[in-house]
Design a protein around this nucleic acid. Structure first.
Lengths: 223, 223
DNA sequence: CTCGCCACAATGTGATCACAATATGCTCGT
DNA sequence: ACGAGCATATTGTGATCACATTGTGGCGAG
């Protein structure tokens, strides 16, 4: 996991949470592996207390799962859960993208284009982790433009749930199966075309879901 | 708030969470009022620790809001937030209802009918709290039939957000403005008709949203 | 009388301890 | 040699303490 920066004293809580969140999205946690409170506390060099708070928050966001024995682990993916996640994403994300559209200014558009290039580069190089991270940043970078207090958190929760699994599959299949579907979205944004943006996002989600579905869901206990 | 039962020692955490959750849905917390950690701890007769966990979970579920000064309060409702909540509900709930439909057995159908009667009775008597509670139980009672690990938590989060506000409005407007829209849903369930169920749920949400929208959003600081 | 400053009270957060529940590894019996 | 039973280690949870930060009330200066 390797703490990327020194812990900030003011918001230690937030910092631990972000570390864990980043580790989840980039797939440093493997589905099924159980997470111990004191373990991450020691690894991050903090006391167990802020880890407790962060873990519980992630459990509340369904990014982690508390198993019956009150152990905390990354939820195992199943075919039905994957299908449900794709459905929820396809319901919420196009709507959120459309709401973000009017608030995408030039600076943000440039950042999105840059992230799209990062996605391409990662795909070309077969860099799994760089791909999932850039892909995540692209989508969220767009959505965050929307002044949304409701839809945005819901979508973030969904991404936290797909993250570890996506990373697992990309690492297994390689990046060859994935194509960049962000071009259409970027063009729609530049044109200010809501309908085409909605379709582009929906297509991107359907596309990714199809690949994941084809990739025979692993047990989740696998390494 | 008045603890309805004695605290269970085994899952004190869960118990406190459920107490707060129930208080939220039934509107015992007023939007804008700030919640103090030691306050509820004393009121529930427990140590501040489980309250910390429960409050943070509710914040993660967006049922509560952590203000900049790290005070915790029920989020103030705004017109835009209300609109977003209605939109999110209308996207997710019909889908969830349809997924629940095949799993509604006779026993559950009877419970739903009973809850519907409770809704009617509450409306007739102008019992605001009984109405919001029965309404909540009706919807969730249906949705919980669906074996959903993704959509269901999202929808629960939405209801936790609408709850306090709905209670506020019902208390202000009285129950006269509200009509029972659950009949159509029940008939669709009995007929096993997915499309009509989807429409019934969508209509119920649109209906409620219209009433709330018409009721000029209060400041949220109001008592 | 009003406004600004200051002391005090209260709050959330992090740390540490104690404990019950659970998992793990070993030993002993067959 | 293998499996059941038990002792030990590990884990999450609740409680309590210490502290930095923030909100609040009162006092005094203008």
């Amino acid at each position: 996991m390797a703490p990327s920066r020194e812990p900030d004293r003011p918001h230690l809580n937030r910092w631990v949470y972000e570390q864990l969140r980043d580790a989840l999205v980039t797939g440093h946690f493997v589905p099924g592996r159980s997470i111990t409170l004191r373990g991450v506390a020691e690894e991050l060099g903090v006391s167990p207390m802020p880890v407790r708070e962060a873990l519980r928050q992630l459990v509340a966001e369904r990014a982690l799962e508390m198993q019956g024995n009150r152990r905390i682990a990354v939820p195992a993916m199943s075919a039905t859960r994957l299908e449900e996640l794709a459905r929820a994403r396809s319901l919420l994300e196009p709507e959120l993208a459309v709401r973000a559209l009017p608030h995408v200014d030039m600076a943000r558009l440039e950042r999105l284009k840059s992230l799209d290039r990062a996605v391409d580069a990662a795909l070309a190089q077969g860099a799994a982790e760089a791909y999932v991270r850039a892909n995540y940043e692209f989508h969220m970078g767009l959505y965050r433009a929307a002044p949304s207090q409701v839809l945005l958190p819901l979508v973030e929760s969904l991404w936290l749930q797909v993250g570890p699994f996506l990373r697992l599959i990309v690492g297994r299949l390689g990046t060859a199966s994935f194509v960049d579907r962000h071009r259409a979205a970027l063009r729609a944004i530049e044109a200010g075309d809501s309908d085409r943006l909605r379709e582009a996002i929906a297509a991107d989600i359907a596309d990714g879901a199809a690949i994941l579905r084809a990739a025979e869901v692993p047990q989740g206990r696998a390494a």
